[in-house]
Design a protein around this nucleic acid. Structure first.
Lengths: 218, 218
DNA sequence: TCGCTAACTTAACACTGTTAAGTAACGGAG
DNA sequence: CTCCGTTACTTAACAGTGTTAAGTTAGCGA
């Protein structure tokens, strides 16, 4: 009760209005259009008012990132239900690429800009597959290990998860940064996605088990 | 001959002085320190003088990139001599990663910043493996195809080259953008490199032929 | 010698993030 | 109720950015 809490609520309100304005600007006009002055304009405050709620512009973008990270991880919700870890990995790969290509600006901010650290997020619990996409992949790798489906020299879930992430990230990152590059005779991104995922599965699993390629099922 | 040519030479001279200054600034203090004013300071000209030689800052950076692209491709010179395409691919992978990690600023500018096009370079001849790194990889893939070492469903050299590039690029790009990220328990980049290259070979080649992993030879 | 043009410089514009100083409103203490 | 301090802002300004417009000087061709 009391005005103490009301002030707190109001403060939180304007905070998220700032974040919303930044996000809209960001999504509709690209990261370069996210200036303090344009954010301020949208919420009808003076530019410097933002500094009362965020340390600086980087802190603001960091919090935007934070939100995106959770949303990103939550996108894997249904996939987590799949019983077969191989199919789960394949689906996760497709979902990852899909997110990146649907939200190139967000993806850039999240993974393609050098950062000292992923937001030391108080709001995302590290290691929880529902909120942490890396933990989700690592979980799948753990299941593959348990079922002894991986090559015998692969025993470190972190290492394998990082290798998988590299390949998928490279696909998305190149598409975002180089999609209009006339130099390379690009194959359709869907085709590349299928082949990268196939390569990951063929490349990490025991040959004996045989990987059903994407071509077989669709 | 006469003063006509001398002027031409002088013009070319100041042009490359600008490029050199920009390159030094870029390598020693990062891309953010490459401002028109600081470049001008170094060559003891006024900032606006640069505009007489380059359309704008982007054009200047583009030409910087151009130079890096050729240097990058030339780094594959000795590797091109290797007779076995499998070993050639492995060595090319290591060399690629090595370049990226040794020149993170250059790598970022070359491959991690969205561009409408790789410089429509008059100075790099597309398709020449000595000057075009993509063509070099595509050439290796062609040899692998000729020797029937690839999985039977893989017949398109461009597609395969792009898949290989994705995986290697992802490794480098993540290392550059996220090397200090506390969120992920990163394995040493050398270890990841070996595993990514192994995954590419295991993932693309026929299982029958057996891939000698990096662990076997070193 | 005249004049044109290439190669510059200086001044300025329109931006950017950010800080310093000033102002109005609100809440608790005496 | 009054006073006072904190909170939440605004206005003005600084230092920086890329870039353009206008003015200046030097050198070549006629």
């Amino acid at each position: 009760m009391g005005p103490r809490e009301r002030r707190e609520r109001e403060r939180e309100g304007i905070r998220s209005r700032i974040l919303d304005a930044a996000r809209e600007l960001f999504a509709s006009e690209g990261v370069d259009s996210v200036t303090m002055r344009r954010i301020a304009e949208r919420i009808e405050y003076s530019p410097t008012a933002i500094y009362f709620h965020f340390r600086d512009k980087d802190a603001l973008l960091e919090e935007l990132c934070d939100h995106d990270f959770r949303e990103f991880a939550q996108g894997f919700g249904v996939i987590a239900q799949m019983p077969d870890p191989v199919e789960r990995l394949r689906a996760a790969g497709y979902a990852y690429v899909d997110f990146g290509l649907r939200n190139p600006s967000h993806y850039r901010l999240m993974f393609m800009v050098p950062k000292n650290a992923t937001p030391q997020s108080k709001t995302i619990t590290k290691g929880d597959p529902a909120e942490d996409a890396y933990a989700f992949v690592k979980g799948i790798v753990g299941d593959l290990l348990k079922k002894k489906l991986l090559r015998e020299d692969l025993t470190d879930p972190d290492l394998v998860a990082q290798v998988i992430w590299s390949a998928i990230h490279g696909l998305v990152a190149l598409e975002i940064a180089r999609c209009n590059d006339q130099w390379v005779d690009w194959r359709p991104v869907e085709q590349r996605t299928r082949q990268v995922v196939d390569m990951i599965l063929y490349g990490l699993m025991k040959p004996a088990d045989g990987v059903r390629s994407a071509a077989d099922s669709g």
